[in-house]
Design a protein around this nucleic acid. Structure first.
Lengths: 363, 363
DNA sequence: TTGAAAGCGCTAACAA
DNA sequence: TTGTTAGCGCTTTCAA
């Protein structure tokens, strides 16, 4: 971007270790020793060098240091799926951010976001920050594609890393996740026990592990109850409002559907209501609904007789703490945090409004 | 942190440009040409090299590249004051984050946060990410200390940068800010016109330019009205709830205070109410209040007869856009965005609750 | 306790 | 159109 000699920073503001060495009357190696807090430097020398460093406002070139010494102090955050399908709410972002600050930032590490792959540049490897030796560790947000293999390379690289979902075929993966297969199983079983046989599943993350788990748990519950699996009752949605509404509408128009599981992650009561209304259904009366929620003690929709709480935030926080320990060498990876979902009656819970997704916000 | 030979990434996962060159049967320079999209590469060569690069999952070493070519693709965000006094609400963070994503992240740049200086490591230079050649541009959040000189060095370095406040003695500074001197002037004048002579000012950011401006505008309004300036009526608060309450309490106990300006940036109605209650005052009746607010059309407290809207978010967004243009070379710096405050009657405005400060959040 | 020399991975300058 | 050489700023290795 900037690469001619008149580029920013090509001026007097940039010093090298040699400038410091000359001014302090020592060799560059001695300055290096002082900067890195190594032993075998005379106290007088150390003090003199330090004062020169401070006086000049000298800071070592990160790139040169990383090149030579393999030392890095930056933790990366990337996104393993397009941001349009990574549902990060305003509240979740704040909490993650605050946590990153407390765990890494306040210890002097910088926290760097690489949106490249998630930004739609899909042939970019989400772990490229590791391969380009930018980061000393990586947090991978979002669902992993069912066919993902990059995570294996990340795992084998030895860098501390954390994903927010498991990959079915690779359980050793360092992850902080919620058991979504069980969540789907619990959801479905619960409805079966209430006598439903035709249960529609409004799901999400098709093509990703998070979607596979949803389908698998649903299918397992049906199988155990000897109910035939009907592919048409399982529909994956993106987060487009109109799409969800249309899907709900069509699902409820299918012959014989008496119950609906919403695991779409949009947490949007209005579109489901509207879809049901258009289908001539009365939610909570002729149609029972069970929604997934990401907040404890908050209902996505009051008509739902029950909710399944997916404690993804809680899992993530525990995972981040474990990652921070791994990062500083206080423990060894991989992180293995797996939370269980919780089934709750909706009764008495306050209905929350649809969370705002951060990457949809416009200035 | 990791620097021995068994460190992460010291394994088979890391390739150099020579590995690519050998595999493609060309020189490293040719690979370099392909990677950088330079001209004068035979189409066949380009295709072959690209396929080798993709196949190996090779990404160039950021540090080496930055060292040799002065090319960087990372924009830094730092904090010029301790985070405890930088009032970033959950909502503001989301918006900034989203904006950073749209302006920088989605174009392939990474966005890196350096909390070091704001994290309490106060002898660290907040612009160190520039001096250590980590960033190609810098966003400096928070108020600048009245005595700050670092900003001059940043300015002279030629890097694109943006501050969120002006420094009185350095108006050329690239900034996106709101005229707080005028805000204080307008606030005070408004109360003077309603007949008040003893106006207390609950202010903030003592020792920072944002605090200086508040005081200056207040003093100017008094001067023009020939009202004597009483130092005891101006009190700076941090964001400690109990401190604000105590300050309000003491201010109102002062002889003859009939009006209060709250420019404390905490946007906290409750503590002001409690302070007033303890002082035996009835806000809106025997004591008139004017609050600063950072949201258009939202009242900090309903007892206030008026609010002054400080459109810092709006200014910041325009500033970030201008910075992005400067960053890609579509325009030249410095950014000069200065918004004016707006006086509004509180009547009819909905009272909002105190915003949650991001860096106070705990997991 | 200090310093000299070499080289990390890449690209600018120059040569072929 | 491609390759060779040198060197960015730092730290490792080794010698003094």
């Amino acid at each position: 971007m900037k690469d001619d000699s008149s580029s920013p920073g090509a001026h007097t503001t940039h010093y090298t270790i040699r400038d410091v060495a000359e001014k302090a009357g020592v060799s560059t190696k001695t300055v290096s020793r002082v900067l890195n807090g190594e032993a075998y430097v005379a106290e007088a020398t150390r003090v003199r060098v330090q004062s020169v460093v401070r006086e000049m406002g000298y800071y070592p070139h990160t790139g040169a240091r990383s090149l030579r010494a393999h030392r890095r102090d930056c933790i990366g955050v990337t996104f393993s799926a397009p941001l349009s399908i990574v549902p990060i709410s305003e509240a979740l972002l704040s909490h993650i951010f605050s946590q990153l600050y407390h765990l890494f930032g306040s210890k002097g590490n910088s926290v760097s976001f690489d949106f490249g792959p998630g930004a739609g540049n899909l042939d970019a490897d989400y772990a490229r920050g590791l391969w380009s030796r930018r980061y000393a560790g990586l947090i991978i947000m979002g669902p992993l594609a069912s066919s993902d293999t990059t995570i294996l390379r990340v795992h084998e690289s030895g860098y501390p890393y954390l994903t927010t979902s498991r990959l079915g075929c690779f359980p050793e993966c360092s992850s902080a996740a919620v058991d979504l297969e069980e969540a789907a199983y619990v959801s479905t079983t619960c409805l079966i026990e209430r006598g439903h046989r035709r249960i529609a599943h409004l799901t999400s993350f098709d093509g990703y592990n998070a979607g596979d788990e949803r389908r698998a748990g649903y299918a397992r519950a049906l199988r155990e109850a000897d109910i035939e699996f009907d592919e048409r009752l399982v529909r994956g949605a993106t987060f487009e409002v109109h799409e969800i509404e249309a899907l709900v509408h069509r699902l409820l128009m299918e012959r014989g559907v008496t119950a609906l599981i919403d695991s779409s992650a949009a947490q949007d009561a209005e579109t489901i209501r509207e879809g049901a209304r258009r289908a001539g259904r009365a939610l909570g009366q002729d149609t029972e609904v069970l929604c997934w929620t990401y907040s404890d003690k908050a209902a996505v929709m009051s008509e739902a007789f029950a909710h399944v709480w997916i404690p993804i935030r809680e899992a993530l926080f525990e995972g981040l703490e474990a990652l921070a320990q791994w990062y500083v060498g206080e423990s060894q990876g991989p992180v293995q945090v797996l939370y269980r979902p919780t089934l709750r009656e909706t009764q008495g819970l306050e209905e929350v409004s649809k969370p705002r997704a951060v990457f949809d916000l416009r200035a």
